[in-house]
Write a protein that binds this DNA or RNA. Structure first.
Lengths: 258, 258
DNA sequence: GAGTGGTCTAGACCACCCG
DNA sequence: GGGTGGTCTAGACCACTCG
């Protein structure tokens, strides 16, 4: 009945993998990888507006639906944010709502708000073996070490140590940390071009040692949460090790399971 | 140029909401709600094969793409499982891999495996005020109370109390619990038609009290994780309260942040 | 009104599974 | 070979935002 013309759609799809099934990879995943590369290279910076779907479709020579599916996944992974009528934006940690994405400690009563920061130590050092292992460095490589206390409503609640690869955070000084307003991850992405994508966290219960007792103002031996967190950037590269001690007198660690 | 025929697609879409934009609701979300109802009513039971996409599209009088998007979301919420070439299945807790979806306690070394169960108490009681509040019951309503210890490699690690609405779990006895092999949630869904969809968890650090000390074989005051978990079924209805005490000597609570 | 993301459809073809 | 989910396209229209 229909004098069907050659199907351009299937042509593009076929060209996409162009081979046997074992090596098959959907077009939209390849597009997703390309867009991720542009994000990583800084072609579009955090907070910026990205090209529209139709524009990207033209650039990659695929249909809008295909780049749409690619962006859908990026949005699901919190790499980009879609806003109807406005466009697609590169996700950023320099926002209010992003602050509690990696910090799951919530007040038992009242609404969550930002803690106050007090830095106890900021210096460069050589990575201890354990730190090097978790950050995928060589033992003895340069790392930036940070130690700080975070307080909610004047109550010291978090005692935390961080290690960052020295290579990536060259100009990171105590002054820069103190004067920066907002979450540390905002500073990392705007000043050092390193964006935290995801993290894994391991939690234990420990008794307060002398340091924890002093800085969190609790009796020695008080039960505290102990968190070890490794954060990753593009390409699943570990770029931060964080060891935190949380007081759960007036706060709790909150998790959603699904 | 084109003698375009009336667009059936837009007709269906328009008919879908049929009103002003404030009350707009996408067709695929309505389909999703209908499918969810069928899941809830037990039209398709956990583990069973669901009708194919084309069949559902026919039933609901929409395109395959629309039911596809609906099922995509259900799959993302772990309500169904898609298997290419086979079909879409109702998700079930009676599987190996589902066992650690809600239990995030992992061994420091070695691979995760199932704990051994020892029930200390199973009985019906009246809900204390706090339990009633969290389960959205009236204080004094009947609840099933369960207390148990779970051991890994012979090491008692979890001391746990559960409260379940008596209304929903009428025939739940100690014998039935003991003889059932596999995760408790498997028993709940197969015998009582109650499927856990999601849960919220709050975690604190506490010192071992007399009971914890005895059952977990640790010294009194030993720091332990304390978890309070509320699980929900369809319609965000709370159907389980669980309070667990975890020993983190050889295990840790693992979380993925993204 | 123009531009963006969001929805919906129809149709083709592909990868996968099973009898 | 037939059925299922998975990919890709093209095109229409809708909801939202902004100048």
């Amino acid at each position: 009945m229909n004098p069907v013309p050659p199907n351009q759609a299937s042509d593009a799809a076929t060209a996409a993998h162009a081979g046997q099934s074992p090596s098959f990879r959907p077009l939209y995943q390849q597009i997703k990888a390309l867009i991720t590369q542009s994000l990583q290279s800084g072609e579009w910076k955090p907070g910026e507006l990205m090209p529209s779907e139709v524009e990207l479709a033209g650039r990659f020579k695929v249909s809008q639906g295909t780049v749409r599916k690619a962006i859908d996944e990026l949005a699901a992974e919190n790499l980009v944010v879609r806003r109807q009528g406005k466009g697609t934006f590169v996700a950023t940690h320099a926002e209010e709502r992003a602050h509690f994405r990696f910090l799951r400690l919530m007040p038992d009563e009242g609404i969550p708000h930002h803690p106050d920061n007090r830095f106890l130590d900021v210096r460069r050092m050589r990575a201890p073996a354990e730190v090097a292992r978790l950050l995928d460095l060589k033992s003895g490589d340069a790392v930036v070490y940070i130690k700080r206390v975070q307080s909610f409503d004047g109550q010291p609640t978090i005692l935390e140590e961080l290690w960052l690869p020295g290579q990536l955070f060259k100009g990171l000084t105590s002054e820069r940390l103190v004067e920066y307003k907002g979450p540390m991850y905002g500073l990392f992405e705007s000043e050092f071009g390193t964006r935290m994508i995801r993290a894994t966290e391991k939690i234990r219960a420990v008794g307060a040692d002398a340091a924890a007792s002093e800085h969190l103002q609790v009796a020695p031996g008080t039960p505290l949460l102990c968190s070890e967190r490794v954060s990753y950037t593009y390409g699943d590269k570990a770029v931060e090790l964080r060891r935190g001690i949380y007081s759960t007198l007036r706060h709790h660690y909150q998790n959603e399971l699904s």
